[in-house]
């Protein structure tokens, strides 16, 4: 049996796993700049995964998806967020709501849940689709987990973007997903990013902080 008998499957699986592992790295990381860097790497892996799927499925429109992921998610958004952080002067370490250890444990649980969920449902589909969907659902859930365990608005946005990476990963993994769906997801994320950016400046202007914990105090709801 040759080593590269099923190289399409192995490579796609490897790239999916990279995206997933980088999601864990996002959960682990405390420093804002490092979070951005890891996010950029995750987007790069996503772009590679999309490009590989384009090649493997012989679906040229996925190259466009890959290009969008590469340009916007791996370069533009991280750079923009980087500038915002420098401009607002908030490059400190982030307070987490839940300790790093328990967060990682919950993350592992979520991955197990995704696999339990996806594998029986998609029994009829090919192995590649099934593994991709399980990885994508894990990335989505880990993104959500990141959003609720961080106290800083910027890292919540990164959590949201990483969640969206999971959606794209699911979309490229499934054969026959029309381009318009991926495009609309990409554009909605762009819009969300712009709105978040505007909100950052407004929040900062009003409250002098992006720490959500402080804002809760402003609402008089500290518990």
């Amino acid at each position: 049996m040759p080593i590269f008998a099923n190289i399409a499957y192995d490579t796609a699986h490897l790239l999916d796993t990279f995206v997933l592992v980088l999601s864990f790295a996002l959960l682990y990381q405390r420093r804002l700049f490092a979070v951005l860097t890891i996010y950029a790497w995750q987007a790069l892996c996503l772009a590679a995964a999309a490009a590989w799927q384009a090649y493997a499925q012989d679906a040229p429109h996925l190259y466009i998806t890959a290009a969008i992921a590469l340009v916007f998610k791996a370069i533009v958004i991280p750079l923009a967020l980087h500038r915002i952080i420098v401009y607002l002067n908030i490059h400190r370490s982030i307070e987490t709501a839940l300790g790093i250890g328990p967060t990682m444990a919950v993350g592992v649980g979520l991955v197990a849940l995704s696999i339990l969920l996806v594998l029986p449902v998609t029994a009829a589909a090919g192995a590649l689709t099934r593994e991709s969907l399980a990885a994508a659902l894990s990335v989505v859930l880990l993104g959500l987990l990141m959003m609720i365990t961080r106290r800083n608005a910027v890292s919540q946005v990164v959590g949201f973007m990483s969640l969206e990476n999971g959606l794209i990963l699911a979309a490229v993994g499934v054969k026959g997903m029309p381009l318009v769906v991926e495009l609309s997801i990409a554009f909605s994320v762009m819009v969300a990013f712009i709105i978040f950016g505007i909100f950052f400046f407004h929040i900062r202007e009003r409250f002098d902080t992006l720490d959500i914990h402080d804002m809760e105090r402003f609402r008089g709801e500290e518990r």
């Binding site: 709501a97 979520l110 959500l144 959003m147 809760e216 709801e221």
Partner: peptide
């Protein structure tokens, strides 16, 4: 509730 609690509730419901 605070935003983070809302998100947590939604997350818990989803899970």
């Amino acid at each position: 509730q605070t935003i983070r609690r809302y998100l947590s509730l939604m997350f818990a419901a989803l899970v």
